[in-house]
């Protein structure tokens, strides 16, 4: 096995994951299966352990920079974890075909929305509008609103968390989608916080990074206990992931919000395409390129 290729794949996954608040499995699993010929079960299990590595390496930097909203992460994770268990339970009986199509449409909408609101979010930061919104009762009761220093705009960004019950419900659905369809949670958690709960994109990414490790540790523990994790494969992958995630987390806060949202929109387009490809494959049997089916 080419250790250097595995390490490079890990670095790329860690870098993208830290920059976008994602787990990085979307890079790791195809590289392991398509490039290195690793069995898909082993690749998913090993990648789930390395998702924890991207999460803790990225989250450590974001917590230090004060970007992560720890209380919000704990709060939303309660329903995300419960949703993931429900999804895993429903996976046996639920018809997944239409869910792929629905999720593809939702991700396409979220992608367009991220790109369109990029400039608007920068203006909101400049005018202090994230702090001007009225926080809801639950957010006030739990003290969920927070602030962070935006290194690109050089301003302290205060924000008030809104629509907490809706955010909690959507987090449950995101967890369920993750348990049902095997997609990472970050791709849904970041837009939920950003577009539903009035949390700026950078704080959403930093908070999502912390959340991912908690949810991934539950599934990775099960894989590990069943002996599905290849630790010899995990070693170079995790080493690369930690380096990449540390680097990605170091530069994320220096990137302009509109560029970050454009990048995130691009990632969502890919996920939307991947979900659509799975729907097409399951309904008409045609395999579209660039997606692990």
């Amino acid at each position: 096995m080419n250790l250097l290729v595995v390490m490079m794949a890990g670095m790329m996954a860690g870098f993208i994951g830290a920059l976008m608040g994602l787990g990085g499995g979307v890079v790791m699993v195809p590289t392991l299966t398509a490039v290195l010929g690793v069995d898909v079960k082993e690749a998913v299990a090993t990648s789930s352990l390395c998702v924890i590595a991207t999460s803790i390496a990225g989250a450590a930097r974001y917590v230090k920079q004060g970007i992560t909203n720890i209380k919000l992460a704990l709060f939303l994770n309660t329903t995300t974890v419960a949703g993931a268990v429900t999804g895993a339970l429903l996976a046996v009986i639920a018809p997944r075909t239409l869910l792929y199509l629905a999720l593809s449409a939702v991700l396409a909408y979220l992608s367009a929305s991220q790109v369109i609101t990029g400039k608007r979010e920068e203006e909101k930061i400049e005018r202090g509008e994230f702090a001007g919104s009225e926080e809801d009762k639950l957010a006030r009761l739990l003290g969920l609103s927070d602030s962070y220093y935006d290194a690109a705009s050089k301003v302290e960004v205060q924000y008030r968390v809104r629509r907490t019950p809706l955010g909690l419900a959507v987090s449950y659905l995101a967890g369920m989608a993750s348990g049902l369809l095997g997609i990472g949670g970050g791709v849904l958690k970041v837009p939920i916080m950003n577009q539903v709960m009035n949390v700026p994109i950078k704080a959403s990414i930093g908070t999502s990074k912390f959340m991912i490790g908690v949810t991934a540790s539950a599934s990775a523990t099960v894989y590990f206990m069943r002996g599905l994790v290849n630790t010899l494969l995990a070693a170079p992958l995790a080493l690369g992931v930690i380096l990449g995630a540390t680097l990605g987390a170091q530069i994320m806060n220096r990137i302009r919000v509109k560029h970050l949202k454009m990048l995130f929109g691009g990632v969502l387009v890919y996920f939307s395409y991947a979900m659509l490809a799975k729907f097409i494959y399951l309904t008409v049997g045609v395999a579209l390129p660039g997606v692990r089916l």
């Binding site: 352990l49 924890i52 999460s55 720890i70 704990l74 908690v214 010899l232 995990a234 070693a235």
Partner: peptide
């Protein structure tokens, strides 16, 4: 060594919640 490293990764997120 690999097993110990994997276990460290697995427990760290929970340990962070306990620290909080």
């Amino acid at each position: 060594l690999f097993t110990a490293a994997a276990i460290t990764l697995l427990i760290t997120p929970t340990a962070a919640v306990i620290a909080a």
